[in-house]
Design a protein around this nucleic acid. Structure first.
Length: 802
RNA sequence: GCCGCGGUGGCGGAACUGGCAGACGCAUACGACUCAAAAUCGUAUGAUCUUAGGAUCGUGUGGGUUCGAUUCCCACCCGCGGCACCA
């Protein structure tokens, strides 16, 4: 009889739910293990087979940890604020909360059908008022500590989504969400001072067990560089400040370059500073302004610029007067918005100088120009002859002595543009009062609910749709009770996911998330940090950076006691369609887990998701491959029908213990593909026995359980045991029992295998050599053996001269 | 251009610390069962040569170290991901 997943899967899912098998106990003496998935946005499309890959892995891992004596926290929730629900609301006129509710139900049903062992008692939803009152509360704490500030600045604006975006949400000049070309627009914004945490975000990466790739991406994104700020006096009236990582090349600075947005350029254009070619400069800066970010980078090869004729700057070290240029290859928002140009030792400056015939002066000996490495300083006045490394220190010392500059650190990381001009997000809980300025609303008035509106459309004016709702906007000042207006911007999608891992913990204590969060400190201490965090790599500089920032803030105000939220991170590789093509709706090659479950059952889906290949590698889905998993389970079922009460042979027991060792180690190391393959090998081995000792088979089923839970639970009952198998402990490996008496020794002549001999494990080298020579006479009969290499009981290589 | 990861049969992928390359699965072929097909079970399956026994080649390419290299070193080619005028 073939195995029928339909019956047993439903049966056991109901059993687990009814008996609360996977509910996390809060009063356990066992060591804790917090195993977390990145919670999904519940989209209308439901899951495709790519989603559950991570979920299945964490689920198997959670089972594995439970069976190994851990108290496991394995929760799930919904990151449900965001544009898709809002766009759907605009189209259909239905409040997002209703479509979200429907989607959540669909998602949950799908996850349940895979047999995932989440503790649904702790389910959270970022759009739940009980939840987002905390998100708002944390924002207020940041505001009170001066980490949230209002600013009007040119930010990334998506004309299609009609909202401002954070730097992290712009990919190659395009909106990360909709792909529209991002514009620069000056709007009033709320900004979070993530740069204040730049150093800690950078340094603490070293302690994390994360994929090197992700850590590297965060390092690059933070982009710390050490160097100096140098002030170049202009006519002894004012300074131009520049940032450089190479103060040692200052004698090679033959001109300054300012970004078109630079303050000095503005003064020139306003007529506050006179130059000879104002129209030329005006013309140039206006053209530069019109270029989008994309055009500016695409045209990167060709440098353009104009001089500020009549102005010169004085090199504070050499005293030399040098020209000042404006060029758009210098970025207004990085460093000081201006640079000292050293064409001999910087590729971009070199191009610029070549194009406009500016002087190129070698000051570091090293080779062909432009030379950007280190070397001996030359043409550098008193500093000539020393190394550039030493020169950096010396120049900075001199600058500091004369108050012409100082050592400085610069970051690529910008502050986090935190407000969105959209409806479906957490309202920012602030009030603008004419008398008191900006005042946070009282904590007891949280959550601040989004108002009911008739239309959800973004206005496109830089104001959110909330701004049109007078009943929402007009309010009383929490401080002076005078007339005041509410802030109408909302928070970005990323806000809710910055602390959700804490909400799961809190929810275990009280079904309501109570104030203040410090109430839960002890419980946070018990469960944090997250021991294993699994999700896609696309969040490298978004969620994973933002959440670390918020967590560090919560650490600073005493809510949590760990510096980092996620100790260990794994990224699941993408699942491609049949033939290695990306799955997409337009290609029609999207595989739905529902269909796979219908055809083969949830256990086959789970096994295949893990068996496909390395967990972090991208792999191609194959429907044929899934059928192999079905055959495997079917063969296990056949073996179940061959059980006897007899004692196992020494040999079978040995194989079992080798299997225990390998499956345990592989699972621990997230090598599920080889763990499952090892189970298959052992299943085939059991079959060879003809009749199978029940004792052995039972241990095998326990190891299969994390991967194929329904099937294994069913066999467990079939073996005459009380459920659940997940209350059992993981098979114990015995080194003694796994020990071989005899091994196959490889005998080579000149590196080629010529014979295999079965020998005792503890064979002496002398004996091994003797056996080897005896069995290879055919190849060594000329008596020309030069050397014999013996590697324990594994291998003998006889080296002959030809 | 820079940073990171990778390249092994027809396919997905294994291989400890330098020690039998190709585990396991898919696909394919043949056989058993069947009136027949499917399912299932069994056998084979890197390539080339060979009557057989076997031989030679083989982990992107070219070199090197070693008794022995998928694994270590040097140079290069290709693919994927990220960053990209960040001074």
């Amino acid at each position: 009889m073939s195995y029928d997943p339909k019956q047993i899967e439903k049966k056991w899912q109901e059993y687990w739910k009814k008996e609360k098998v996977f509910e996390t106990k809060t009063d356990s003496e066992k060591p804790k293990f917090y195993c977390l998935d990145m919670f999904p946005y519940p989209s209308g499309q439901g899951l495709h087979v790519g989603h559950p890959r991570g979920y299945v892995a964490t689920d198997a891992f959670s089972h594995f940890k439970r069976m190994n004596g851990y108290n496991v926290l394995h929760p799930m929730g919904w990151d449900a604020f965001g544009l898709p629900a809002e766009n759907y609301a605009i189209k259909m006129g239905i409040h997002p909360k209703y479509s979200i509710k429907e989607n959540v139900e669909h998602f949950k049903q799908q996850l349940d059908s895979i047999g995932l062992s989440y503790d649904w008692n702790r389910e959270i939803n970022t759009t739940d008022p009980e939840y987002f009152k905390w998100t708002q509360w944390i924002f207020i704490q940041m505001f009170n500590k001066g980490l949230a500030y209002e600013d009007t600045l040119p930010i990334n604006w998506c004309p299609s989504c009609k909202t401002g975006l954070a730097n992290e949400e712009v990919v190659n000049g395009l909106c990360d969400r909709c792909g529209a070309q991002v514009e620069r627009k000056s709007i009033r914004q709320w900004v979070l001072k993530i740069t204040k945490y730049a150093d800690r975000l950078l340094e603490d990466l070293d302690d994390l067990d994360w994929p090197e790739q992700i850590k590297e991406m965060q390092r690059n994104w933070i982009g710390r560089s050490e160097g100096a700020v140098i002030r170049f006096p202009v006519f002894d009236k004012f300074f131009v400040e520049v940032f450089t990582t190479r103060p040692d090349t200052i004698f090679g600075a033959t001109f300054l370059v300012l970004a078109p947005e630079h303050n000095l350029v503005k003064k020139v254009l306003d007529g506050n500073i006179n130059i000879e070619n104002i129209y030329e400069v005006k013309n140039y800066t206006e053209k530069a302004k019109k270029k989008s970010d994309i055009e500016r980078t695409e045209l990167a090869k060709e440098k353009t610029g104009v001089p500020l004729k009549g102005l010169t700057a004085k090199n504070p070290i050499s005293g030399e007067e040098i020209p000042i240029w404006v060029a758009d290859y210098v970025l207004g928002f990085y460093g000081k918005g201006g640079i000292m140009s050293v064409p001999a030792h910087d590729e971009r400056d070199y191009e610029m100088a070549k194009k406009y015939g500016l002087e190129i002066r070698e000051v570091i000996k090293g080779g062909e120009l432009p030379y950007t490495g280190e070397g001996e300083m030359v043409n550098s006045g008193d500093f000539s002859g020393i190394s550039s490394e030493k020169g950096k220190e010396e120049i900075i010392k001199k600058l500091e002595e004369d108050d012409n500059g100082e050592s400085a650190v610069n970051y690529k990381l910008r502050d986090w543009v935190f407000s969105r001009q959209r409806y479906w997000g957490e309202p920012i809980p602030l009030v603008h009062c004419k008398k008191c300025g900006i005042v946070p609303i009282n904590e007891e008035d949280l959550p601040l609910m989004p108002p009911e509106v008739e239309r959800y459309e973004p206005t496109g004016t830089g104001e959110s749709p909330l701004s049109g709702i007078d009943s929402f906007v007009n309010t009383k000042c929490p401080k002076c009770s005078g007339e005041a207006k509410r802030e109408t911007n909302t928070m970005p999608q990323w806000a809710g996911s910055c602390w959700y891992y804490l909400a799961f913990i809190a929810k275990g204590i009280s079904q309501k998330l109570d104030f203040p969060p410090n109430t839960y400190k002890e419980e946070f201490e018990r469960w944090m940090p997250v021991d294993l965090y699994v999700g896609g790599a696309e969040h490298a500089v978004l969620h994973l950076l933002y959440a670390r920032f918020w967590h560090k803030f919560l650490y600073d105000i005493g809510v949590v006691s760990d510096k980092e939220p996620f100790y260990k991170l794994k990224n699941q590789g993408m699942i491609l369609g049949e033939g290695g093509i990306k799955m997409s709706k337009s290609k029609g090659n999207v595989v739905s887990p529902d269909d796979v479950i219908k055809k083969y059952g949830a256990d086959c889906l789970r096994l295949y998701e893990l068996f496909l290949g390395g967990f972090e590698d991208r792999v191609a889905w194959s429907d044929r491959g899934v059928s192999g998993m079905y055959r495997f389970l079917d063969k296990v079922e056949n073996n179940f029908n061959l059980l006897t009460e007899r004692e196992p042979s020494e040999d079978l027991e040995r194989e079992l213990h080798k299997t225990i060792k390998k499956v345990t180690e592989d699972t621990e190391n997230f090598k599920f593909n080889t763990a499952i393959s090892c189970l298959m090998v052992f299943n085939n081995r059991m079959k060879e026995e003809g009749d199978i000792p029940k004792k052995i088979f039972t241990e095998f089923v326990k190891m299969l359980a994390p991967f194929a839970p329904h099937f294994s639970e069913n066999l467990w009952e079939g073996l005459g045991n009380n459920p659940s198998i997940f209350n059992q402990s993981w098979p114990k490996y015995s080194k003694e029992k796994a020990k071989d008496n005899q091994v196959v020794m490889i005998i080579q002549v000149n590196g080629k295998v010529r014979h295999r001999a079965t020998v005792d494990v503890d064979i002496s080298e002398k004996e091994a050599e003797k056996i080897a020579i005896e069995n290879t006479k055919k190849w060594t009969d000329k008596g020309n053996i030069k050397k014999v290499v013996v590697i324990g009981n594994k291998l003998v290589n006889i080296v002959c001269v030809e």
